[in-house]
Write a protein that binds this DNA or RNA. Structure first.
Length: 872
RNA sequence: GCGAAUGUGGCGAAAUUGGUAGACGCGCUGGAUUUAGGUUCCAGUGGGGCAACCCAUGGGAGUUCGAGUCUCCCCAUUCGCACCA
């Protein structure tokens, strides 16, 4: 069969062939979670369609596959089953590899890699050491979620409603030393090079640009005295024009000023502690109720000399900028609410009040907000339109526009050595230390005498022992004396090995390059990357639009600057597939944790009008609650196993249905209604081929002498070929390509003609169909191509080009509108002039009825499409 | 809260550059064949009138000869928010 043929002929083995145009098609590698889910099937089918299409178009293709094999779920499974994460991971890989193979993907399995293997992660460690040398990798403290009961660091995912998932204890924020990669060093380049990525979706580029978040503003200080010492409270603002309206400052709970003030203030100390509770998640911090407490400390306004009170605010983040902000309640919504809540002064310094043209939001904020307008569009206009607001109540700055005021104020601050203009990035350095076992060890040795010593290259890799079983109370590596105890590479004295491992995003930041040289034991990559990289087409879920893709771009640039690779960007073209979603069902017992039920185990209840009235569990008939629609995930137990689909209908149907269900970029709410339709279509096609072949292969026929219906069918075949080529090759809309092929199949079925001419036209159409379908449903196409009399395999056939002569038409149908409403259709010769089309349109009976008795004001003729007659 | 997207029949969707709204498929209804059917084939299928026509692309305004498509406001859903991957 087809898979045996590909295996025997090594059809998908990729070899570097200088001079032959390559096509590197990469799908994001899977995490070996256990079994494939629908998102995988979608992702890898898209990649496979493009790979096979490009191969048939003469490109030297590479489609590799590997495993993003380190990560948290393996540790969770270990805790649940007492099995080492390594065993669980390797078992999953074996199972999922079989599943992938059963789907018949055109993968070069000789290049398979797994990130948990020392021969792979050795190079994580190696490049980390190069980054240390360059100062890109460095150590500083970072904030983590701390479970006080289990005495362990929690991932954000393990924090549920501010509590540890296993212990239920309130999570605390804790500062610990970590290694960081200085991605901000590349911020400007990462932003600028987005311009090179014209083949990336606009939305991804927008998200990345916003994430990097360049803003030009002013960094300045409020001087103050603390225990007689002169200190400065630094802040950053993009709205320096409002500095004269500052009425208070707010600092994070972790800010030194807060800590100092709390020393002699029990209430404040308690508040600071309260602020430190809860998670480090930004989404949560952004939605919490804004709370604050005065520190009792005042600072001096750098320009007015006024005394400004300093508050501790639970909404100010230490990891952000300076960990302190200036507050201008009159011109910032959040500051406004805070000031209202705590009775702080509000001082208007910009004229963007009642004189603004846009509607006021006073009704929303209350009457005393009438002078302030903070609608989104207004805010944007404010930056764009100098006319929109001028400084007032601002002393010497009165009357200045935004940019004039910023310039003048920055200059004055600079003259006082209290500040200056500064470019600020929203992007933060990448903390890669994880206090977890199942990851790549960070190659550092801690020596009491020599400090933190990098592991010498010759001692790489630092191998992770594979037999630990985590128990949820911290990193088991700490208990492994054989791992921890070592000799200092510098002084030879006993020392301790670092037990933190790397963020798994490190592993996935360069695997695409390793596929080019997977067998090289001596180097991270070699000259083969020059042939294959950059990736021509990268395919993966939209959920990776920011982090993974940004980290990969950064890592690639570091590799470039280390002399390992060439080129600025790793991924030329990006296709972000939409998520596959499914409904979430659960029960929440009065006591205890939520239990999620798989949609396959739930029956939906409808009333007579087909309205949903509820859902019950199949096993007990009792109701379950709906948690809405969400990404298929293990934690929500709403995944659908594609294996049953494959078992029931076969790989081709699963692939075809997946591609037919929706365009690849669109979110897909899963439903397997309609799978049978895809299967039916393939069966019908197969029957059509069998019937055609059993009548014998056609003799040569003279195309010119074909009767009209056969000419039409032939034209449709070539039109379909042109459309499908465009849909797959350019638009990547596989659903419309399949629909077009279905139409052609239907058209063949309608021709009831046994002549040699009909056979000949049918033969050509069936050959087109087989080729057009072969990237999507390769198994049936493989068989069908042979049945149609070809000795070569369809995978080795060339993608045909439509015959321009066959596409020619002599008449066109034109739509006639009267006042923009459809009133008739007329047939016109292709070469008809505008004037003739107009005459024919007006002559149409239905059109005449609507035009008669009225004055024709205007006639719009869109060539080849429509005529619109405008009457009074 | 911030950033990005999406919203069209009973359902998945199509309409590619502002030009026929609903291609293709599912489901449903009726019929034929089979008469065991998770088979095959034919016809119908947005709503209202059942004819001429009218209404309809999340809601509301606007631009245009013409808007699903462009502009503004609003609503809902999904993704991301730095330790899930």
């Amino acid at each position: 069969d087809a898979q045996q043929y590909w295996e025997k002929h090594q059809s998908f083995k990729a070899t570097e062939t200088p001079g032959r145009e390559k096509y590197y098609c990469l799908s994001m590698f899977p995490y070996p979670s256990g079994k494939l889910h629908m998102g995988h099937v979608r992702n890898y089918t898209i990649g496979d369609v493009l790979t096979r299409y490009m191969r048939m178009n003469g490109r030297n293709v590479l489609q590799p596959m590997g495993w993003d094999a380190f990560g948290l779920p393996a540790e969770n499974a270990a805790m649940a089953n007492g099995v080492p994460p390594a065993r669980w991971t390797y078992d999953n890989i074996a199972y999922m590899k079989r599943q992938l193979m059963s789907l018949g993907f055109a993968i070069d399995w000789d290049r398979e890699l797994a990130t948990c293997k020392p021969e792979y992660y050795k190079w994580n460690q190696w490049l980390f050491l190069r980054m240390l040398e360059k100062g890109i990798a460095y150590k500083k403290t970072g904030v983590v979620n701390w479970d006080p009961v289990d005495q362990t660091v929690l991932a954000n995912e393990q924090v549920i409603d501010g509590r540890g998932w296993r212990t239920g204890a309130l999570v605390e924020r804790r500062e610990i030393p970590m290694y960081y990669l200085e991605i901000t060093r590349y911020a400007a380049e990462l932003l600028a090079d987005l311009d090179q990525l014209s083949e990336w979706p606009e939305r991804v580029r927008a998200m990345q640009a916003n994430w990097i978040g360049k803003s030009v503003g002013v960094r300045f200080a409020f001087p103050y005295k603390l225990d007689g010492r002169a200190e400065k409270l630094w802040v950053f603002t993009t709205r320096a024009d409002t500095i004269m309206g500052v009425t208070f400052c707010a600092v994070a709970a972790e800010h030194p000023l807060a800590a100092h003030a709390a020393k002699n203030n029990l209430k404040l100390a308690a508040f600071v502690e309260e602020c430190k509770r809860g998670t480090v998640m930004e989404a949560d911090l952004a939605t919490i109720e804004k709370k604050g407490m005065p520190t009792g400390i005042t600072v001096t306004h750098p320009l007015t000399g006024e005394q400004i009170p300093v508050w501790v605010g639970n909404y100010v983040l230490m990891g952000y900028g300076e960990g302190a902000v200036m507050a201008v309640p009159a011109h910032d919504e959040r500051d406004f609410h805070f000031a209202r809540q705590y009775g702080l002064a509000i001082k208007q310094v910009i004229t963007n009040g009642i004189e603004m043209k846009r509607k006021s939001r006073s009704d929303f904020f209350g009457s005393d907000y009438a002078y302030y307008d903070f609608s989104e569009s207004n805010w944007k206009d404010w930056y764009a339109d100098k006319e929109n607001g001028l400084c007032i109540n601002s002393g010497k700055y009165d009357g200045l526009t935004y940019s004039e005021a910023v310039d003048a104020i920055a200059a004055d601050l600079k003259a006082k050595s209290l500040g200056d203009k500064q470019v600020m990035w929203r992007l933060r350095d990448w903390g890669i230390s994880r206090q977890r076992y199942w990851g790549c060890p960070i190659p550092i040795i801690h020596c009491d005498r020599c400090g933190d010593v990098p592991v010498p290259d010759k001692d790489l890799p630092v191998v992770l022992p594979e037999d630990c079983v985590p128990d949820g109370t911290g990193n088991p590596l700490n208990k492994r004396a054989d791992f921890v105890n070592c000799a200092c590479p510098k002084c030879g004295q006993p020392a301790r090995r670092e037990t933190d491992t790397m963020d798994t995003f490190v592993d996935s930041s360069w695997y695409y390059a390793r596929y080019c040289a997977p067998d090289n034991a001596k180097a991270m990559v070699d000259e083969r990357v020059k042939y294959w990289m950059p990736v021509d087409q990268y395919i993966g879920g939209i959920e990776h639009a920011i982090l993974h893709l940004l980290y990969s771009r950064f890592w690639w640039k570091v590799m470039r600057d280390t002399g390992l690779v060439h080129g600025d960007e790793p991924f030329m073209r990006l296709l972000t597939q939409g998520m596959v979603l499914n409904e979430i069902f659960f029960r929440k017992p009065a006591s205890g944790r939520i239990v999620y039920y798989n949609p396959a185990d739930v029956d939906l209840k409808f009333d007579v009008d087909r309205n949903r009235i509820g859902a019950v569990l199949k096993s007990d008939g009792l109701p379950v609650e709906s948690g809405g629609i969400g990404t298929m995930s293990k934690s929500k137990n709403n995944g659908v196993d594609p294996q049953s689909l494959i078992d029931q209908y076969g790989a081709d149907t699963a692939r075809l249905f997946m591609m037919f269900a929706a365009p690849p970029e669109m979110t897909l709410e899963w439903s397997d209604e309609g799978v049978a339709g895809a299967h039916r279509f393939l069966k019908r096609l197969w029957r059509l081929v069998a019937e055609h072949v059993s009548a014998g292969l056609p003799a040569r026929t003279d195309i010119a002498k074909l009767p009209e219906p056969l000419k039409d069918l032939r034209r449709l075949a070539h039109q379909t070929l042109a459309k499908v080529t465009d849909d797959i090759g350019r638009r990547r809309t596989f659903n419309t390509a399949i629909a077009a092929v279905m139409e052609l199949v239907n058209a063949i079925g309608r021709i009831d003609d046994t002549s040699e001419g009909a056979k000949s036209v049918r033969q050509e159409a069936l050959e087109f169909i087989t080729i057009m379908l072969s990237p999507i449903a390769p198994h049936i196409s493989h068989a069908s191509w042979h049945a149609l009399g070809h000795r070569e395999a369809v995978i080795d056939a060339r993608w045909p080009e439509p015959d321009a002569a066959a596409l020619k038409q002599d008449k066109l149908e034109i739509v006639v509108q009267v006042n923009g409403k459809l009133r008739g259709r007329v047939s016109v010769p292709v070469q008809a002039l505008e004037e003739q089309v107009r005459e024919i349109a007006l002559a149409d009976e239905a059109v005449a009825r609507h035009v008669s008795g009225k004055a024709v004001k205007k006639v719009i003729v869109v060539p080849g499409k429509l005529v619109n007659i405008v009457v009074a």
